[in-house]
Design a protein around this nucleic acid. Structure first.
Length: 311
DNA sequence: TACGCGTGGAA
DNA sequence: TTTCCAAGCGT
């Protein structure tokens, strides 16, 4: 990546009516962001709302470094929602490659169809309309509204949750699932001014991604270390039950991944025997394939062959 | 609310 | 090698 983006406006002129705690954080974090923000393609002015939306789908649980090349290919191939809507869901799944969670590709295709049919081909600006699209939940609706349209929303992703847990609550990690208390805190900290609020959303997220990381946090580079409740408390370690880990080897997910990889790489329908080769245990193999069909990721043909969905 | 859902890189 | 983690969503 090249030089960081420099937004044209400064936060300092914006009026604020939020509390003193927020005021002491916003300026420092936004200033830090203006100096240290990564130059990511979906942050460039020419990315547009569709580019922002595509990036948000891809970034759901997938690191930036792996999203970058697929994002570029995707936008080059389908520069507008209507372009994707005209193609098959199977092509979306194929182009998704190995980003993981391929149901996201299906949902992004479904969202493009809905945008073409219901919104005149333009990504909706309204939070509720965004939320109604497949694959868009609370976080993504707020992120698109904020990043693409500059609106004022609490954008509460895993990075922001961790920053608030440490800086405000004084604990090492947020709860496993987002709580009402976290939402309330995020709303309370949201700058009153719309432009400042959208900058704060991006800046606090970037701070969590680059400095206030889950492991090996870089407090010496943190613009709010002096005010951080966790730092001031001596950085106590997480107490309580271990945070939920993800097992993978031997699960249906692994089998599904192997099955779908065969179909992604094949550009013609595949016989059952080719799928049988990916996993030795027939019961689990059948269950995984049934699940893929049920999810709409695989289409069984009348002749016993399988392919990615053509419709 | 808790769980299922992919993948690969880093420690 | 194993474990943990990465801009969540839908049920």
């Amino acid at each position: 990546m090249t030089a960081p983006t420099k937004p044209p406006h400064s936060h300092s002129a914006a009026p604020r009516s939020d509390g003193p705690l927020g005021q002491s954080l916003h300026g420092a974090v936004i200033d830090w962001f203006e100096e240290n923000a990564r130059d990511l393609p979906w942050r460039r002015p020419d990315a547009g709302p569709w580019g922002v939306m595509v990036s948000e789908f891809m970034l759901q649980q997938t690191p930036v470094s792996r999203v970058l090349p697929v994002y570029e290919q995707w936008l080059a191939r389908w520069p507008r929602p209507a372009d994707l809507a005209k193609d098959t869901p199977g092509e979306a799944v194929r182009a998704w490659g190995r980003l993981g969670y391929p149901r996201r590709a299906l949902r992004l295709h479904g969202a493009a169809v809905a945008i073409a049919e219901r919104h005149g081909g333009d990504v909706p600006t309204d939070h509720a309309q965004l939320l109604a699209l497949p694959g868009i939940g609370e976080y993504t609706a707020a992120a698109v509204a904020s990043f693409a349209y500059g609106q004022r929303h609490a954008v509460l992703d895993t990075n922001v949750r961790r920053v608030l847990a440490r800086a405000v609550t004084g604990v090492q990690y947020p709860p496993n699932a987002t709580t009402a208390a976290e939402r309330k805190l995020a709303r309370a900290l949201l700058p009153e001014d719309e432009h400042t609020a959208s900058r704060w959303a991006a800046a606090s997220m970037e701070l969590g991604a680059l400095v206030c990381t889950a492991k090996n946090e870089a407090c010496h580079r943190c613009p709010i270390a002096a005010q951080c409740a966790w730092q001031l408390a001596g950085k106590p370690e997480h107490e309580g039950p271990p945070r939920r880990g993800q097992t993978y080897a031997g699960t249906d997910r692994q089998v599904r991944g192997k099955l779908l990889a065969v179909l992604r790489d094949a550009h013609a329908p595949v016989p059952q025997a080719a799928l049988d080769r990916v996993w030795h245990e027939p019961v689990q193999r059948a269950r995984a394939l049934d699940g893929l069909v049920a999810d709409g990721l695989v289409e069984p043909l009348p002749d016993g062959m399988y392919r990615l969905p053509a419709s």
